[in-house]
Computed example of a mutant assay.
Amino acid sequence: MKITIQKNSMNILFDLDGTLTDSFEGITKCIFHAMTQLGKPVPPPETLGRCIGPPLKKSFARLLDSQDDGLAEQALILYRERFASVGLFENRVYDHIPQVLGTLKGKGHNLYVATAKPEIYAKRIIRHFDLDKYFKHVYGSELDGTRTDKTTLIAHILDKESLSADESVMVGDREHDMVGAGNNGLPGLGVLWGYGTREALENSGAYACLDDPRELVDKISYI
C-alpha cells in the first residue's frame, strides 16, 4: 500500500490489549481461573501471551483442544466472572502512551479505541486509567461475540462515525489488526511493544512497524 500524501488530520483507531495497555497479568490469571474451574490443565503462564488480542473464545477452544462450542462458551463465562470484578484492572498503561495520545489529540487527530474485547469492559478500563479524555469513542465487541472480528469491527466504526478510509489508520500489535485494516482499505501500523511479532505484522500487510509509542507522532503525520 503506497501512501505519500501528508494529511493534517487523521482518524486513528487504537487496539487496546498489547497496544495501549499491557493486560498480561489479568488475562492470564482469568484464563487460569476458568481452566482450573473446569478441571483442565493450564499451560505455563509465559505461553499464554498468544491469547492476548485474538477472540478469546477461539483461544479457549485451542487451549481445551476441543471442538465443543459449549465447553468453550462455559470457559468464557468462567473467565468473565473473574475478569469483570478483578482481572480488568490487573493491567498497566504502556510507558509514554498518555503523552503520545495527548500530542496526537492536540494536533487535531481523532482518536478511537477499536478492540475485540467486549465494549463494556473496554470502556471501564479506559476510564479507570484516565485515558477516556483522549478518545472520541471506545468501540469493542458485544458479549455475544458480535464484532470480535477486526474486519467487521473496523467496518462498523467507519460506518458509525462516517469516517473515510483514506483518512484513517489502524494501530495494533496483532496480525488481526493489520488484516482488518487492509480489508477496509486502511493502512495498519504494527506496534512491537505488545504481543505480535514483526514477521507476523509485516506478513499481514503492516504499512510500518514501530518499536516505541513515541514514533507514532511522526509516523502518523506522513500517512
Rank of each mutant, 00 (worst) to 15 (best):
D132K: 08
F14Y: 13
C30H: 04
Y112W: 08
A206S: 11
L111I: 04
D218Q: 13
E90A: 05
I77H: 15
N184Q: 12
G196Q: 05
V93A: 10
L189H: 07
K219W: 13
M178T: 00
V169R: 00
F60I: 01
K57N: 05
G106A: 12
K105Y: 11
C51Q: 00
G87M: 03
R80P: 02
D149H: 07
Y139I: 00
K58N: 06
Q6R: 15
G196L: 00
D68F: 02
Y195H: 05
L153V: 02
T36F: 07
R82E: 08
H33K: 09
G145M: 01
P41F: 10
K107F: 11
A34N: 05
D218V: 02
S59E: 06
G87S: 10
R127L: 08
H109L: 09
I126C: 06
R174Q: 07
S9C: 14
V169H: 06
K105G: 11
L76G: 04
P54I: 05
P44Q: 12
L56R: 00
E175C: 04
H96W: 10
G172T: 01
A34M: 04
A72C: 05
Q37W: 08
L63A: 03
N110Q: 12
V179D: 03
S168P: 09
G108E: 07
L76P: 02
N11L: 10
L158Y: 09
L186A: 04
D166N: 15
I31P: 00
I97F: 06
D212Y: 10
K2S: 15
Y94F: 14
Y79G: 06
R214D: 11
I5M: 14
D130R: 11
D177R: 00
A84M: 09
S9R: 14
R50M: 09
D144N: 13
R50H: 11
L63R: 02
E81C: 05
S204G: 11
E161C: 06
Y134W: 13
V171W: 02
E73S: 09
G140E: 03
E73F: 03
D15S: 02
L63D: 10
T47Y: 11
I220C: 08
L20A: 05
Y121A: 06
S23K: 06
V113L: 09
I154C: 05
M35D: 07
T28W: 03
K58T: 08
V86D: 14
I77T: 14
H33M: 05
E25S: 09
Y94A: 06
H109K: 08
E199S: 13
T4S: 15
D17N: 06
E73W: 00
S221A: 15
G188F: 05
L189T: 04
K123M: 11
K150Q: 07
T36G: 11
I97E: 07
E142S: 13
L201R: 04
Y222M: 10
T21D: 04
K123P: 01
I3Q: 15
S85E: 14
Y121K: 01
I5Y: 13
G185Y: 12
F83G: 00
G70K: 07
Q99N: 15
I52K: 02
N184V: 00
N203Y: 01
V179M: 04
K160C: 10
Y207F: 13
N183M: 06
H176G: 00
T103F: 02
S141F: 01
T148L: 01
K107L: 13
R50W: 07
A61H: 09
S9P: 04
A208C: 12
P45R: 14
K123N: 09
K29T: 08
H156R: 12
I52V: 08
L111W: 10
